[in-house]
Design a protein around this nucleic acid. Structure first.
Length: 365
DNA sequence: ATGCATGAGGT
DNA sequence: CCTCATGCATA
């Protein structure tokens, strides 16, 4: 795979176990869904915007042609240089780390944790570091006391079982997929959980190093247990934690590789911690008693942006990460891509830059 | 493991 | 139209 393409991530490659043979989770109520995520307030967006977008004055002023042309030219150079991966040093990541913003900008935080707390209030933003970040609500659920019930080894689950909690019943196996419901679905209707007694720590209080350590530990334990990332995601739905449904293999993978936003990591940690505890317990039980029972529409098409176009987009992005609608239209036309594709590409690119590993925190605070 | 996409919630 | 959390599809 091309992991080379992503400058921000270098994930491990030692896991072999991730291969999942099965990845079919079906729907999930986004756990975040609790009451949808409780977004805290995402207040600082504007601020962030200003900070970052105000570069040297008018570079963009005359953007249009010249800039685009320039960006393309740079992109072309890039090509020449050979490695497909690259980005010209100067081009990409204006500042690498985005000191300015970082992590998380604000947030919603969480959703995940359901029990919790959703939010509470908008914490003031912190002066520094995570610039704007958000406040998030809860922090850790006492994992020890969580009532969970999970079953990782599902003997025969033919298909996914879907999350029961609130999932709109779907059928296993097939997704109806029709009008758009499947992926995004919106099951959100969890109960709005008022306040919670818990202490919510601010995500800003969670040390990235701690998250990293947990993620690593989690991965190791998971592998030892012989559980795939997809299994974990599915098992989460069975843990009936309030507000927590299944998660996809992707998300578990991203958690392990720290490629989620700081807030997202903080939100997911307690949940995965809960699962791990349950899983370990089950494993021990099994050891004791050698068990008896064996354990027993239309598909979405992914658009693929060709390398040359991708290079151009990267070049544009380096110059202006947040192009206006008109600009996006112009770029789309030039590259012969759909406008929406270009728009989404920029959104995703921005998200990438905010991801953890390397970008977010300054090490550790 | 990652690219492109969706959708809720916000501005 | 953005940000975020997530996911399907895919290399």
């Amino acid at each position: 795979m091309q992991r080379n393409n992503n400058p921000y991530v270098f994930l491990s490659s030692d896991d072999t176990s991730m291969m999942n043979g099965k990845q079919h989770i079906s729907m999930h109520p986004p756990i975040t869904a609790g009451p949808k995520y409780t977004p805290l307030h995402r207040t600082s967006e504007a601020m962030r915007r200003h900070c970052m977008t105000t570069p040297p004055s008018n570079i963009f002023a005359g953007l249009d042609e010249s800039l685009l042309a320039r960006a393309e030219a740079l992109a072309a150079i890039d090509v020449v240089s050979g490695s497909g991966v690259k980005h010209s040093p100067q081009l990409l990541r204006p500042d690498t780390g985005y000191p300015g913003m970082n992590g998380t900008a604000h947030s919603p935080a969480t959703s995940v944790a359901g029990p919790g707390p959703h939010v509470s209030h908008p914490l003031p933003h912190h002066p520094h570091s995570f610039a704007d970040s958000e406040a998030s609500p809860f922090d850790q659920i006492p994992t020890t006391s969580l009532p969970l019930s999970m079953s990782m080894t599902d003997p025969n689950s033919p298909v996914v079982s879907s999350v029961s909690s609130m999932a709109p019943t779907h059928l296993p196996g097939m997704h109806p997929a029709p009008t758009g419901n499947m992926t995004g679905m919106s099951p959100h209707h969890l109960v709005p959980n008022p306040h919670h007694p818990m202490s919510m720590h601010d995500p800003n209080d969670t040390d990235p190093r701690e998250l990293e350590a947990f993620a690593e530990h989690f991965k190791q334990r998971r592998i030892k247990l012989g559980v795939t990332q997809a299994d974990v995601g599915q098992a989460l739905g069975k843990l009936k934690l309030p507000g927590v449904g299944s998660l996809s293999q992707s998300t578990i993978c991203r958690f392990e590789s720290l490629t989620l936003s700081h807030n997202n990591m903080v939100a997911l940690k307690p949940v995965l911690e809960a699962w791990l505890g349950e899983a370990e317990q089950q494993a021990r039980a099994k050891q004791r008693s050698p068990d008896i029972f064996n354990n027993a529409e239309k598909k979405r098409k992914r658009t693929s942006i060709a390398a040359p176009e991708k290079r151009s987009l990267e070049a544009y992005f380096a110059v202006q990460p947040r192009p206006s609608s008109e600009k996006i239209a112009a770029i789309a036309e030039k590259l012969d891509l759909k406008k929406n594709v270009v728009r989404v590409w920029f959104c995703n690119q921005r998200q990438k830059q905010k991801r953890m590993k390397f970008s977010a925190q300054q090490g550790g605070r």
